[in-house]
Design a protein around this nucleic acid. Structure first.
Length: 711
DNA sequence: AGCATCTCTAATGCAAACGT
DNA sequence: ACGTTTGCATTAGAGATGCT
């Protein structure tokens, strides 16, 4: 197989990953399986990969019987696993509702448009890099993203905006899917900058509403001979394709995409934020050259690094975070294809569900039903005990006290096993942050003194089919509640997109040129079924000015995209204001740090919850907040040490200056008194002073060291 | 045929135990 | 009090095989 074919193949794969379900649905199940197998197995060793490709190419030819069953069997298995990496959960309409309102303000629309476009471009570049790497092309790829903003009618505020990248490109046939509003928005469970192009669609709709002009897209993939141009009109709430043709007018990259549109916006107001966004985007992506044309002037951020951000791997949803609508959609999708047993469905459709939890799940369902019948608010009782400060404080005084307190005061209206409850409190199993999830079935049965024989009959067994569940709303609801009420290990972390340490440091150090910096990376953690990870870079001194606005001191990044607006309400800002900066000689509590210091905080998580609809502020969450706090504090501690050393040096410097002044006098006086060599005495005095009062920071210092803290 | 179970190993995260 | 080590429980993934 030639290199070129491999590259082609991988590029296809990367593109097909974004392929919406609808596309495939028309095909027969077996075909689908084979397509998906080829699509989703990029990381297998060569041997396996070749086998699959053989299987695919032999599709039309008659196969030897056992070969057929073997390849089919393998294909089906893998396909089934693959299916769940793109389960469709929300319609594009829902997504649009959530995403598109960043265009409401005229001062913000240009900004939002550029953000959406640049996010898409960066995703496309990452995919191209990944494809290139996988196909063994090691030469450095000169990724480039060009943004053009032109004011074409100053009085009306009409702008022409285009974003061009030399990323993976969109195949001709797929453009329609991406450009059509009301098409599919597939939500993959992985961290991503953008929502599969939905944001750009929203921009196009706004653009069309404000100017009446259509939006254009020109694209070319590596394997297409010619770039193709498409023009879409979004007027009157529907999408009309006006043009689809080969693009011949000017040079176009070997592969890449250019999206352009016209819109009415207050660019002078948006300008600073756009510029800041471009700068920060360039900082996060040192492996991409960013060119920003703004009405004739050009700002260029050269590529500074070869390493890039790895593409996150989609992971099936986590059972703890599923809601009833999602579950129904998932069941329906499965049912449309083929109705299987619920046990098989659960195991494959969710991560972290195995055979053990299927048994537990059935039993948990009967427990929940039992509580329903008896009218027991088990969750509330558990929560009340777990959240009680008093109960926690009584731990010191022994289980009897807790038992007494629970029985006579806190939950006296309920009949539970108070002794057992107090044991659980003593063990910390019922502590703040804990809930029914953290108790096993046996724990609950014991705690609520349930006789096992009185538990109702399970509403379904592992062998109940998906169709059966789907046709009974009560069962769907019960299943959802059960999944949410059980404990499952944290989701895997492959779905995150942490910025590699080198990329992070390269990116910011080269742009902000500090004297010293520290990089902190927290271990991945999880909150309501989603993994999260926080990285922090603290920078001090050098070219960083001492008087900065708050917005400049704290750089917020979510899934590799800088956030600009809604600074004050962001969880990062609020958490940082909570930190007592005086401990690190960096300011005071209640404010952001002072002095020549910048903190860059990166939060990565699939389906990150944002405050606003325009995705410019991360919503509050206890786990995320504490992760941010720990990471920023760790970086601040290191910077604080540095600041203290600087201060010490400054003091030492003063003393040295005095001493040096007297060295001259002393050596001359000595010469007069006992005829010594003035110069020799002077140099040895100076040497002695230097030895005793070293000035670390005036000497050329070794490059600052990055520090990881894994806590 | 279609789906399950069984077995094994590797990976993961949590919590108790340990050491400083 | 804090961070690190260790053991335990669980899932994931692969192959083989078994049930209806």
């Amino acid at each position: 197989m030639s290199n070129q074919q491999t590259l082609l193949d991988t590029m296809f794969k990367s593109i097909d990953k974004t392929k919406p379900k609808e596309e495939i649905k028309e095909e027969k199940p077996i075909q689908k399986i084979e397509v998906e197998t080829a699509v989703e197995e990029p990381q297998k060793e060569v041997a396996v990969k070749e086998e699959q490709i053989t299987a695919r190419s032999q599709k039309q030819k008659p196969l030897v019987k056992e070969e057929l069953s073997k390849t089919k069997h393998r294909a089906r298995r893998e396909a089934e696993d693959a299916i769940h990496s793109h389960i469709r959960l929300q319609s594009a309409e829902q997504l649009l509702k959530r995403v598109d309102t960043g265009f409401g303000q005229k001062s913000r629309a240009p900004f939002q448009t550029i953000v959406e476009g640049v996010q898409n471009a960066a995703d496309a570049v990452d995919k191209a890099r990944e494809a290139q790497k996988k196909s063994g092309h090691n030469e450095d790829y000169n990724a480039q993203i060009t943004v053009r903003v032109e004011i074409i009618d100053k009085s009306r505020g009409e702008l022409a905006i285009s974003i061009e990248d030399n990323g993976i490109g969109i195949p001709k046939g797929k453009v329609a899917i991406i450009m059509r509003a009301g098409g599919t928005g597939t939500v993959e469970y992985k961290a991503s900058r953008s929502q599969q192009g939905i944001g750009w669609k929203a921009a196009a709709i706004y653009s069309n509403q404000s100017t009446g002009k259509p939006a254009e897209i020109v694209s070319k993939t590596y394997f297409e001979k010619q770039p193709h141009r498409h023009v879409y009109d979004y007027g009157k709430g529907k999408v009309t394709k006006i043009v689809e043709e080969n693009y011949v007018e000017e040079e176009f990259p070997e592969h890449g995409t250019r999206m352009s549109l016209y819109l009415i916006g207050d660019y002078p107001r948006a300008r600073n934020n756009v510029k800041e966004f471009m700068k920060r985007m360039a900082a996060v992506h040192p492996y991409i050259t960013f060119i920003f044309h703004e009405n004739g002037t050009v700002i260029k951020y050269e590529k500074r690094s070869g390493a890039s951000i790895p593409i996150p791997i989609p992971v099936p949803p986590h059972p703890n975070s599923v809601d009833i609508g999602q579950l129904k959609d998932m069941l329906a999708a499965q049912s449309r294809e083929r109705s299987i047993w619920i046990s098989g469905f659960l195991k494959r459709a969710f991560c972290r569900i195995g055979s053990k939890s299927i048994d537990d799940l059935i039993e948990r369902t009967t427990i929940l039903m039992y509580f329903d019948e008896k009218g027991v608010f088990a969750g509330d009782i558990i929560k009340r005990i777990a959240q009680s400060d008093k109960a926690a404080r009584l731990k010191k005084e022994g289980p009897e006290k807790i038992e007494y307190y629970l029985e006579k005061v806190l939950v006296r209206d309920y009949e539970i096993d108070f002794k057992f409850a107090s044991e659980l409190v003593m063990k910390g199993r019922l502590a703040s942050g804990k809930n029914i999830r953290f108790l096993s079935n046996d724990d609950i049965i014991r705690l609520f003194k349930i006789e096992k024989s009185k538990l109702p009959k399970p509403p379904f067994t592992p062998k109940t089919t998906v169709n059966m569940i789907l046709s009974d709303d009560g069962k769907v609801r019960l299943l959802t509640e059960t999944l949410r009420s059980m404990f499952f290990p944290a989701p895997p972390i492959d779905s995150l997109m942490p910025i590699p340490k080198d990329v992070f440091i390269d990116g910011f150090i080269t742009l902000y040129k500090p004297d010293n910096y520290f990089f902190i990376e927290r271990k991945p953690s999880s909150t309501s079924g989603r993994p999260i990870q926080v990285q922090v870079l603290g920078m001090y001194g050098g070219e960083i000015p001492s008087d900065m606005k708050d917005q400049e001191k704290l750089i917020r990044i979510a899934n590799s995209t800088p956030l600009i607006y809604e600074f004050g309400s962001d969880i990062v800002t609020q958490t940082c204001k909570d930190i007592d900066w005086s401990r690190y000689k960096l300011g005071r509590r209640g404010e952001l740090p002072s002095g020549p210091v910048i903190f860059v905080v990166h939060v990565t998580s699939p389906q990150l919850k944002y405050l606003g609809v325009a995705k410019q502020a991360i919503g509050s969450d206890d786990v995320i907040a504490s992760e941010i706090k720990f990471a920023v504090q760790a970086a601040a501690r290191k910077l604080g040490e540095h600041v203290k050393r600087l201060e010490k040096d400054k003091a030492a410097g003063q003393v040295r200056k005095y001493l040096e002044r007297y060295a001259r006098v002393v050596s001359e006086t000595l010469n007069k008194m006992i005829d010594t060599d003035t110069d020799a005495v002077y140099t040895s005095l100076i040497d002695e002073i230097k030895r005793r009062r070293p000035m670390v920071f005036e000497e050329p210092k070794p490059p600052a060291e990055a520090v990881d803290v894994e806590e």
